[in-house]
Simulated assay, not measured.
Amino acid sequence: MDKTWLHEQVLARLAEDLRQAEQAARTAHETATHEENIAENKYDTLGLEAAYLATGQVRRAEAIAQAMAGWRRFRPAAYDADRGIQLGAWVCLVDAAGQQQQLYVGPPGGTMSLTRGDQRVQVISPDAPLGQALLGKVEGDDVSLQLGASRQWFEVLWAA
């Protein structure tokens, strides 16, 4: 797996999410404006509810389109051990139980899990708690993350 493949997969998934959100917005709009859904009394709210849903779906589609634009502009720099983990880093962590996980730190809006063969990579943004905790870390560093009342510990095995 490489960064180019990860980038392409994120854009493909965002494009599919955008298509679905736009279709959902169209369907909700059609429901809201259909003549059979005109309110006959103050308790008949199907058309109003569909209008609220359509508005929400349009906002969701706009957010996905913004995320896609950010990912299209994004060009990850080569990993620099002097700067540590930054936007564009591909990282492998190990927890206290010895479980490894791979992460790719990308622009906001692309959080998802990608799989290629038996390799799984979680895409996160630097805005996420784990993304924030990783910034500046290098191979061998410990990373701690407070989640509610519990604290999780990881070690950076490698970064690329």
Results as ranks from 00 to 15, higher is better:
56 G>C: 04
56 G>W: 00
77 A>S: 13
19 R>F: 07
19 R>D: 15
94 V>C: 12
80 D>P: 07
49 E>Q: 11
48 L>C: 02
34 H>Y: 06
83 R>V: 01
18 L>G: 08
32 A>H: 07
94 V>D: 07
72 R>F: 06
47 G>E: 11
17 D>Q: 14
85 I>S: 09
94 V>N: 02
53 L>A: 14
87 L>H: 04
66 Q>L: 12
55 T>V: 04
43 Y>V: 01
17 D>M: 12
19 R>I: 05
76 P>Y: 04
82 D>V: 01
32 A>I: 03
53 L>V: 07
49 E>M: 12
43 Y>C: 03
21 A>W: 00
49 E>I: 00
23 Q>W: 04
51 A>H: 01
82 D>G: 14
44 D>C: 10
61 A>T: 06
46 L>E: 13
94 V>S: 11
36 E>Y: 06
52 Y>S: 06
49 E>Y: 03
23 Q>M: 06
36 E>C: 10
80 D>I: 06
78 A>D: 14
32 A>E: 05
60 R>I: 03
89 A>N: 05
53 L>Q: 14
77 A>F: 04
84 G>A: 09
94 V>F: 06
27 T>C: 04
49 E>G: 01
58 V>C: 00
71 W>C: 07
79 Y>M: 08
77 A>T: 09
24 A>P: 05
55 T>W: 06
89 A>W: 04
52 Y>F: 11
22 E>C: 02
9 Q>G: 03
75 R>A: 13
68 M>G: 09
67 A>I: 08
15 A>T: 13
38 I>R: 12
62 E>F: 03
39 A>H: 12
57 Q>T: 00
85 I>T: 07
41 N>H: 13
55 T>K: 10
45 T>H: 10
70 G>E: 12
82 D>Q: 15
88 G>Y: 00
33 T>W: 09
78 A>Q: 12
31 T>P: 02
87 L>V: 05
62 E>L: 04
14 L>G: 04
50 A>C: 11
72 R>C: 07
22 E>W: 01
22 E>P: 03
68 M>R: 15
27 T>H: 06
49 E>S: 10
80 D>T: 13
84 G>S: 03
88 G>V: 10
79 Y>C: 07
27 T>I: 09
74 F>R: 07
65 A>T: 02
18 L>T: 09
77 A>V: 08
70 G>V: 01
31 T>Y: 02
52 Y>W: 01
32 A>S: 14
